[in-house]
Amino acid sequence: MNLASLLSKDRIILSLKPGKKNKVIEDLVYTIKQGADAELIVSTLLKREELGSTGIGKAIAIPHCRSLAVDKLEIAVGRTTKPIKFNAIDKKPVSLIFLIIAPPQDPGNQYLITLGKIVQIAKELIKKKLIGKAQTPEEFITLIDQVEKGLKKGK
């Protein structure tokens, strides 16, 4: 399973309107679900943020949770046009957000594996200064694919 194959271009927003952390999370969730399901997911994601920010530093955040509202692993990506406050680990603002929602029943623990993989890829994007590189969702998916393949080769 590779990360690029889990990304969908209609769930990648590369010109996300900057705003409060909660609003940005909400905007990304709405690319996946609407209505009461979206409200439930947002509520759980915000509870997760209360436990400690998922801003891993260097402008990247990875909000995540499991929810009954989804039947498979769903990922949305947002890049804000201006960095936003996210109470990240390094106290710096965030501009790239990977949002992950997994179903409660998750054969093979794909959720935690994917979460770990995203952290690894995100760190690579930071290291190689690639956060702002992609201009379209298609380019973003290609970029993630290349970074992932590069990581595999490096092993």
Binding site: L40, S43, T44, K47, L51, C65, R66, S67, L68, P104
Partner: peptide, 8 residues
């Protein structure tokens, strides 16, 4: 909500 919190 309770279930999602428990999963968290």
């Amino acid at each position: 909500l309770l279930f999602d919190l428990d999963n968290l």
